[in-house]
Amino acid sequence: MTRRAAGLAHLELEGATVADVLQRLLASYPDLRPHLLDGDCLRPDICILVNGRNIKYLEGEATLLDDADTITIFRQVAGGAP
């Protein structure tokens, strides 16, 4: 969903924390704002991973980043096959 809203699948951004990167992402792609934020807060149905680990189990949006880190953003819209 976020991919469709932004019109792209991958991009490179700089930032010391997840919050920094989100800020830069939204500055570049303002159409993403309603897909990611509820007011000024991250929507509860948005999952953000840093190198595959949900930031909920790291330091949240304050999670520190290294140069080669990969951030993945997706909405909780997925289900498996019965």
Binding site: M1, D45, R75, Q76, V77, A78, G79
Partner: peptide, 9 residues
């Protein structure tokens, strides 16, 4: 989100 949007799409 899953039943109304993700799975249908």
């Amino acid at each position: 989100a899953v039943t109304g949007e993700g799975l249908p799409t």
